[in-house]
Write a protein that binds this DNA or RNA. Sequence first.
DNA 1: TATATTTGGTTTAAAATATAAACTAATTTA
DNA 2: TAAATTAGTTTATATTTTAAACCAAATATA
Lengths: 95, 95
Amino acid sequence: MSAFKELDPLLHSQLRLAIMSLLIGVDSAEFVFIKEKTNATAGNLSVQLDKLSTAGYISVTKSFKGKKPLTTCSITKVGIKAFEDYVNTLKQYIG
Amino acid sequence: MSAFKELDPLLHSQLRLAIMSLLIGVDSAEFVFIKEKTNATAGNLSVQLDKLSTAGYISVTKSFKGKKPLTTCSITKVGIKAFEDYVNTLKQYIG
DNA sequence: TATATTTGGTTTAAAATATAAACTAATTTA
DNA sequence: TAAATTAGTTTATATTTTAAACCAAATATA
């Protein structure tokens, strides 16, 4: 067995990985939905969505449902690739 | 799909996971060997071995090879269980 | 034979990350 | 009309990770 390959640090975080895992299976998902599925606090979720978005792994659209803010997220091609690479790399660690 | 289960934070760290991954396949391993396989710095490795040891996931034996210190590590039953649980939980995230 | 380097680490301090608490603003509900 | 809820963001704090500095012994070098 050779030396371990680096795990994308952006994905190697429980919450961000859960977000990506959710988004890879759907067309798009709303903030509140993601919050419930991941059991994250709104604050933490907000921060982590921002990081994924900044990296280009997801796209985040802010609109309004009536007059309430509505944040919708979807995974990008770059994000899908990164997620797949992460999963492959991880296999070296977990056999 | 239900809410995501928590990933053992002690194992959800690249270096500690690599250490466990190495140790699960061998009887025991020396500090220098682990250091080379994981590409970790000695300082970081020392710290992380300590955390795994404190948690009871590995046992660390300090002896001497001649007059040079020799640190030998092996995974414990508790550690094997934790690693297996972690891997199973992870499957929820990576499908 | 000094001295510089390497080996095998530990300790401590700094940087990065994650989490929680406090806050905004609009909307219901009692 | 006051209180609570929804949908978030910002900011501060706690935790983790990493790197830098250090120690002691051994070995290589000039």
